[in-house]
Lab assay of single mutants.
Amino acid sequence: MGFKLLSKLLVYLTASIMAIASPLAFSVDSSGEYPTVSEIPVGEVRLYQIADGVWSHIATQSFDGAVYPSNGLIVRDGDELLLIDTAWGAKNTAALLAEIEKQIGLPVTRAVSTHFHDDRVGGVDVLRAAGVATYASPSTRRLAEVEGNEIPTHSLEGLSSSGDAVRFGPVELFYPGAAHSTDNLIVYVPSASVLYGGCAIYELSRTSAGNVADADLAEWPTSIERIQQHYPEAQFVIPGHGLPGGLDLLKHTTNVVKAHTNRSVVE
C-alpha cells in the first residue's frame, strides 16, 4: 500500500471513529477524501466538511520552486461564519470567499490569524475590503508590521502568557507558548472536538522541520505538551499544512522538532 493511500485511509478511519463516538456532533463529509496538494491548482481553494458547521479550507501556493498546501478553518456561528487564517495570499483568499459563498452561503463576518507569517495573514486586506472584521493577538499584529505583512485590524486580548485561553464565538483560542513562531495560536472547536494546530503542528508525513527561522526550538516541545494537557479530548487535529489526523500529530511534531534540534547540535 502506497504512503499517500495509507495517509488518506488514516484520515478516513479517524473521521469514521469520530462519527461513531459522537453521532450528534459529527456529520463528516462523505463526498470524498481530504484534498491534497496535487489536486488543488494554485489560485483555487477546496472546502472539506469535518463536522456539522465545521470545515477546513485548503489552498496551495508556490514557494521556492515548489507547491505547498495550506489549511485553515471555518466555523459556523449562528447565521454567520468565523474564518481562521487566510488562504495564503490575496488571490487565494478572494477564491476562498467565493467558494464559501458557493458552498455554504453564509457571510464571513470575523477572521482570526493564528500567527504573523504570510500563509496566515496574506489576504487580510481582501477580507477587510469584503467587510470582514480581522483579528490577531497584539504580538501577531506587531510582528506582521515588522515583517511588512498585512496586519489584522483588531487585537485579541488575554493571550499574552503561555497557557492563556479565551473564548471567541464558537471557538476557544489558546496560546501554548512559542513553537513554530513566538505568537502562534491554537484554535479548538469544543462542539466538535476539532483542534486546529496551525503551523505549530505537523502532518504525519512530514519528517523535516522546514521553516524554523522564527521558531523557538527549545520551547516548542513544552508548548505541545500544554496543548495535549489542555485538549486531551480532541479527536480531529488539523495541521497548518497537509493531512489531518488525531492527537498523534502532536507527538510526531515533537519528535521531528527534537530530531532537528539534535542534528543542529551535532553539526
Rank of each mutant, 00 (worst) to 15 (best):
F3S: 07
F3H: 05
Y12S: 12
T14I: 12
A15W: 15
S16I: 15
I17F: 05
A21R: 10
S22W: 10
L24W: 13
L24S: 08
A25H: 15
D29Q: 14
D29F: 13
S31F: 09
S31W: 12
G32P: 14
G32L: 15
G32E: 09
G32M: 06
Y34G: 11
Y34V: 12
V37D: 11
S38V: 11
S38Y: 13
E39Y: 11
I40F: 07
V42P: 09
E44K: 08
R46H: 15
L47E: 01
Y48Q: 07
Y48S: 13
G53K: 08
H57N: 03
A59G: 11
A59M: 04
T60E: 06
Q61M: 08
D64S: 09
G65L: 13
Y68E: 08
S70R: 02
S70T: 14
N71A: 13
N71E: 01
G72C: 02
G72T: 02
I74W: 02
G78E: 08
E80I: 15
L83K: 02
D85R: 00
T86F: 00
A87S: 12
W88M: 01
K91N: 12
N92V: 02
T93M: 04
T93E: 00
A94D: 13
A95R: 12
E99C: 05
E99L: 14
Q103W: 11
I104L: 15
V108N: 00
V108T: 14
R110W: 07
V112A: 05
T114N: 00
H115P: 01
H115K: 00
H117S: 00
D118G: 08
V121W: 00
G122F: 04
G123E: 03
L127C: 00
R128I: 12
R128F: 14
R128P: 03
R128A: 13
A129R: 10
A130L: 14
G131K: 12
V132Y: 00
A133H: 15
T134Q: 00
R141M: 09
L143I: 11
L143P: 03
L143N: 11
E145A: 14
V146Q: 11
G148M: 10
P152Q: 02
T153H: 12
L159A: 04
S161P: 06
S161L: 12
S162V: 09
D164Y: 07
D164W: 10
R167W: 05
F168R: 02
P170V: 09
L173C: 02
L173I: 15
F174E: 00
P176R: 01
H180S: 00
H180M: 01
T182K: 06
T182L: 09
N184A: 01
N184C: 01
V187T: 06
V189I: 06
A192G: 07
A192V: 07
L195R: 00
L195G: 00
G198V: 03
G198M: 04
C199V: 00
Y202E: 09
L204E: 07
L204I: 12
L204Q: 05
S208W: 07
S208D: 10
S208Y: 08
N211T: 07
V212W: 04
V212E: 12
A213I: 09
A213D: 14
A213K: 13
A215K: 05
L217N: 14
L217W: 15
A218F: 12
A218L: 15
T222F: 12
R226L: 08
Y231D: 01
Y231A: 03
A234D: 00
Q235I: 07
V237S: 01
I238C: 03
G240W: 03
L243T: 06
L249N: 04
L250Q: 00
L250P: 03
K251V: 07
H252V: 04
T253A: 03
T254H: 12
V256F: 04
T261W: 14
T261N: 09
N262A: 09
V265S: 07
E267C: 03
E267V: 10
